[in-house]
């Protein structure tokens, strides 16, 4: 397509929008409301993921080694586990039976607790500290396969919380997808009304030899503009809304929200492409029927 023709089609799209002002407002409004709902879910999912990451960072995985594992072998295991960086391993510490006993005596406040027993029943262990985004389950599965590992312990409450966060995230993403389909349906029907109002124009265009793309382009551009407007309005509302939420939630230390800058980036990356997609797909699907007639 020539640049000159694109200019003509763009002018036609702007004219189309101004001529069908009310319908354009309705379509942009539909996209805005839909993107608001999607954006809210996206913000919730992002915060849950971040919350989950923070929880994971607090997890310490403790690996109790079999009694027959020597200190040299334990050191070897420590090095091996330390190499599982892709699973989020940050640091691995070797706690010898003696150190463990001392720790416990200190914790319970009973010195020489094990001296009385005559024997130290505690095994050597490794303490694994994890970083954000750690793949706990995968790491535990991996460690279990290593020789000399007797038992692995990590906090169950955190595991349950993580599971809840994970379920909510999956539900959120599924809802976003379902909402997307619903949005597309609503947008198609709204845009179809604007296209229906101009079916005569399409008929005449076909009659004088316009190609299907020449006919589609103004509608596609209109859809794009409407999608962008819808995304912009939704992004501003959500960004302002999140700003106030972030400010008022900053006092609650156990609920650390994702910083605004990251949410704004997310809104930019999610809402604008989604808005353009809905606008363009809605237009294409709506025009399709009239092109076939």
């Amino acid at each position: 397509m020539r640049l000159r023709t694109f200019g003509y089609l763009f002018r036609e799209a702007c004219r189309g929008l101004s001529r069908n002002g009310l319908m354009a407002v309705a379509a942009a409004g539909t996209i805005t409301v839909s993107l608001l709902i999607m954006g809210i879910f996206a913000i919730i999912v992002t915060n849950l993921n971040s919350f989950g990451d923070r929880l994971k960072a607090q997890i310490q995985v403790r690996i109790f080694l079999a009694p027959d594992v020597s200190l040299e072998e334990a050191e070897g295991l420590r090095e091996e586990i330390k190499s599982f960086k892709e699973d989020g391993v940050r640091r691995v510490r070797l706690v010898t039976r003696e150190e463990a006993a001392a720790e416990m005596e200190k914790l319970w406040g009973v010195p020489e607790l094990f001296t009385g027993l005559g024997e130290n029943p505690l095994p050597n262990s490794l303490v694994v500290e994890l970083g954000p985004g750690a793949k706990v389950e995968r790491l535990v599965r991996k460690i279990k396969t290593l020789p000399g590992v007797a038992e692995i312990v990590y906090r169950d409450l955190i595991r349950s919380l993580l599971l809840v966060a994970q379920i909510v995230s999956v539900v959120g993403v599924t809802l976003i997808l379902v909402i997307s389909l619903g949005v597309l349906y609503i947008v198609v029907n709204t845009v179809r009304l604007t296209v229906f109002a101009r079916r005569r124009e399409i008929e005449i265009m076909k009659l004088v030899g316009a190609t299907d793309w020449f006919i589609r382009w103004p509608f596609v551009l209109e859809g794009m503009i409407l999608g962008l407007i819808g995304a912009m309005v939704a992004a501003v509302i959500l960004s302002k809304g999140y700003y106030f939420l972030f400010k008022s939630a900053s006092q609650i230390t156990w609920l650390p929200l994702v910083p605004e800058a990251r949410i704004n980036q997310l809104l930019l990356l999610v809402l604008f492409p989604a808005g353009i997609f809905f606008g363009v797909a809605g237009s294409l699907l709506s025009v399709k029927r009239f092109l076939r007639e």
Binding site: M1, T5, Y8, R15, R200, I204, V208, G209
Partner: peptide, 22 residues
Amino acid sequence: KLLPNKTVYENVAFALEVTEAP
């Protein structure tokens, strides 16, 4: 079958616009 929102000139030019004439 004229387009009511276009002028006489635009209605006629329309047939050439679609051919991407200069």
